[in-house]
Simulated assay, not measured.
Amino acid sequence: MVDYTEPLPAVNTRRLRVAQGLVLLFHITGFVGLAFADDPSFYLRFTPLTLLLTAGLLFSFQPGRGAAFWSFCIVAALLGFTAEVIGVHLSWFFGHYRYGDTLGYKVFDVPLAIGLNWLVLTYSCGILARYIPLPELPRTILAALLMLGLDMCMEPVASTYDFWHWTANVIPFQNFRDWFILACILQMLFNRANFTKANPLVPLVYLTQLLFFFLLGALQ
């Protein structure tokens, strides 16, 4: 396995600032709409588009988007999506839950956006964990905990905005346990994929999403 730690190529500062501004615009607009609008449904309809645009901006700053990078993206998205399909239909993973309509078009009762969400989270948290010089196992655990932390901020608002719904409105411990296990598996996959693990947009994307859901939950 190659552990890429070489410096990033020079980044166009103006391009980075524009991307950061767009990420902030997407999330601030969504937050204000969901938190304070009389009818948040108008803003909810843009949720899949916001995730897609954020992912596009994020990956545009990935150096050397070659076969190894895109192979990782496909496998991570498919693995996350497959786990959700099994979870929804068999309750083997996460617990008893179903998806609402906010996250968009579904296949096997799971929104396609969920696969992209698992990919973005794995990629972002995997890169964030590399800001601290750690051996692979502690780095994997740290990245998985970062992923779990975002899920814990999302859960309190998920049913309110029709993302997903738990049976009897009870979030089971199984959800967090299985989230962490799957996150560890995805992070091991990330660590072994041979592409440059650095992206200057990642810290803002993760922090913005974390604050977005945390503040929504705090206002409930």
Rank of each mutant, 00 (worst) to 15 (best):
K106F: 02
R177Q: 08
F46L: 14
L22A: 09
A55N: 10
T102I: 03
V32Q: 02
G56V: 15
A83G: 10
D39V: 08
L24K: 01
F176T: 11
V120K: 03
P203N: 00
T13H: 13
V85R: 12
I171R: 04
V170E: 12
P40Y: 03
G87L: 05
A83D: 06
T13P: 02
L145E: 11
A193Y: 00
L116M: 10
L25K: 03
T140H: 09
S91W: 05
V205L: 06
L211N: 09
R14N: 11
S159F: 07
A35H: 03
V170I: 14
A55W: 15
M154T: 07
N117F: 00
L103R: 11
M1F: 07
L215R: 06
L121A: 12
F46I: 08
T167E: 15
T29P: 02
A168H: 14
I127C: 05
R65A: 03
A198E: 12
F36T: 03
H165E: 11
D162E: 08
L51M: 15
V110T: 08
A143N: 07
A183K: 04
G21V: 05
T47V: 15
M152C: 09
V2I: 11
T54K: 12
I181A: 06
E6T: 13
R65N: 03
D178W: 04
G33P: 02
